[in-house]
């Protein structure tokens, strides 16, 4: 199997074993606990998108992964800023 051939199975594994548990963490507990799940889900989703770009052989898809990497972090800053005041 070529190195790029591993990318799609790896993306599948990461989606099921990485992103999904992070999402589960956003579903229960206090806002702080949920936020930690969301913060972790950002990089996990970024990695999935990176692996997809590699697996599909389309470097152009990397733009989407880049945007997720930046904005998911900025999005968790939004929640962190209001933590304790509103949520």
């Amino acid at each position: 199997m070529s190195p790029l051939g591993v990318a799609l199975p790896a993306a599948f594994a990461l989606l099921v074993a990485g992103v999904f548990p992070c999402f589960l963490a956003t579903l229960r507990g206090e806002p702080v606990d949920r936020l930690s799940g969301l913060i972790l889900a950002g990089p996990a989703a970024t990695l999935v998108l990176l692996l997809l770009a590699a697996g599909f052989g389309r470097p152009a898809y990397l733009d989407a992964a880049f945007l997720v990497a930046l904005l998911s972090f900025a999005g968790s800053l939004v929640f962190a800023r209001f933590l304790g005041k509103t949520i």
Binding site: A60, Y61, A64, F66, L70, L71, F73, A74, R81
Partner: peptide
């Protein structure tokens, strides 16, 4: 922690936004 990360992130995201608009004709975006 919030203050520093926010200030570091601001220029990067601004440049990214300009990039996404300017290259929308060629690449995704």
């Amino acid at each position: 922690a919030l203050r520093i990360t926010g200030y570091l992130l601001l220029p990067v995201i601004m440049v990214t936004g300009v990039y996404v608009v300017a290259h929308g004709y060629i690449s995704p975006g």
